[in-house]
Amino acid sequence: MTPVSDIWVYLTDSPLWWLTATVLAYAVGDWAFRASGRKPFVNSVLIAMILLSALLVVTGTSYEIYFDGAQFVHFLLGPATVALAVPLYVNRHRILRTALPMLAALVAGSLTAMLLGLGVGWALGLRGEVLLSLAPKSATSPIAIGVAEAIGAIPSLTAALVILTGILGAVIVTPLYDALGVRDYRARGFATGSSASGIGTARAFQVDPVAGAFAGIAMGLNALFTAVATPLVVDWLF
């Protein structure tokens, strides 16, 4: 009979283990989210992240080994982004009618996030490449990382800030917009997608399909806006 430790070594060496662990951890997070009565602060991504990180620490596994398995889930982000075309297509008339509000909210919201991030960071003593890494963090990861490279920021730090921004946005957006008294799901979805990119968009789909569609287009538009505007803003400020 094979000793348990041999089976363990076999399992942790195979991508299947961490792939399965990722899906199971997320299933636990999703169960907790539903069991809580769909409370926004019971965020399934956050729960899965914490569970898996603890498991990595306990088993002494490096992120590289983990990612060997988890990359199969990660890969699906590309096709899922293409799939956003479906809600866009379904809601196309609704979206075209709100072209003006979308454009205004995109420019105002993105610039606010960018300038507040740089301003507050600067006031708290951040300088140079660390400070600049805050600028593109509201855009979806591939764009944010590309912009970080272009403006002389730290791409891996920006990538982390994108994820943290997304989780924070997903957790606070519902209580924040309830407090502000904004009920329109077009406005709520669009603002969430443009401020909190992918994880915000995932949250919007959890709440309402129209909010999800508007979050999807906002994420795409903000990618474009961030790519063009960030280098200009950084040039102008520094």
């Binding site: 992240m49 898996l52 992120y63 983990y66 990538a159 982390a160």
Partner: peptide, 19 residues
């Protein structure tokens, strides 16, 4: 795919915690 969009961000999220 979109119904479980959140799941797809878990690997990157674990990377953030690791770093």
């Amino acid at each position: 795919l979109l119904a479980h969009l959140s799941l797809l961000f878990v690997p990157a999220g674990v990377g953030v915690v690791a770093h």
